[in-house]
């Protein structure tokens, strides 16, 4: 009965949402702000990838908030699972030798790929978040692959904090130079080059490190909590 009622209610909401979107023509060019972003991104911010320029420069405050959310999730997770540190050996079964050798071989390549992605954030698709996550998956493979592997939490949290501070300091520098918070103060350089688009690469590299360290920390905390039997 409950399932029926739920289905009916959701049908009701679905109908209303559909009517809401009926008026939106799919695929038509109805950009207002989008046009201005596309036109001003290369000349004003020097970044080739408009999405990255929006994410880091135009709406940099969102990304600052975004990084904080991730940071708070990692801290919150650590706080919630604080008392549940498990013994190392109950992490998981003995990994097969293929997995171990595969993990050892793959890890550097994955980290390289991740680094490439967040360094070229303003040129090719991708950026801090994507690169950081890829590095985190690299660490995940290591955790799964090597039995005795333990992410060095101290190092991770230092990296995380330093990256976070660089982001905020980049913002404060904007203020120090008499401009606004998070405003670009470095020369734009020629678009398409790695060293172009002012502070965008710096911020995105910092975000990359931060996300990578954070998610690795999160994964390791999750892996090492007790099975809950004791």
């Amino acid at each position: 009965m409950k399932k029926l009622l739920a289905a009916f209610l959701l049908g009701f909401i679905g109908y209303y949402l559909y009517t809401a979107f009926a008026g939106v023509p799919f695929g038509e060019n109805k950009m207002e702000v989008g046009k201005d972003y596309l036109e001003t991104t290369v000349p004003k911010t020097g970044a080739v990838n408009t999405v990255t320029s929006i994410v880091v420069n135009y709406r940099g405050f969102d990304t600052l908030g975004e990084v904080t959310v991730l940071f708070l999730a990692a801290t919150g997770l650590g706080a919630i699972l604080f008392g549940m540190k498990g013994k190392p050996e109950d992490k998981h079964r003995e990994p097969s030798s293929i997995l171990t050798t595969g993990a050892k071989a793959l890890f550097p390549i994955i980290v390289l790929l991740g680094a490439y992605i967040f360094i070229h954030g303003h040129l090719t698709p991708g950026g801090g978040f994507q690169g950081g996550t890829i590095i985190a998956t690299g660490v995940l493979i290591l955790i799964l692959g090597i039995k005795s592997f333990h992410a060095n939490h101290a190092l991770l949290s230092v990296m995380e904090s330093l990256a976070g501070i660089t982001f905020v300091v980049a913002g404060i520098l904007g203020l120090a130079f008499g401009k606004n918070f998070l405003e670009n103060i470095l020369p734009l350089g020629t678009p398409g080059q790695v060293l172009s688009a002012g502070i965008i690469p710096i911020i995105y590299i910092a975000v990359g490190f931060k996300v990578g360290a954070e998610l690795a920390g999160v994964l390791d905390t999750l892996m090492s909590t007790t099975r809950g039997e004791e």
Binding site: V55, G65, F129
Partner: peptide
Amino acid sequence: PVPQALVLT
């Protein structure tokens, strides 16, 4: 590009 930036976050 704007929705893509939003979705990223």
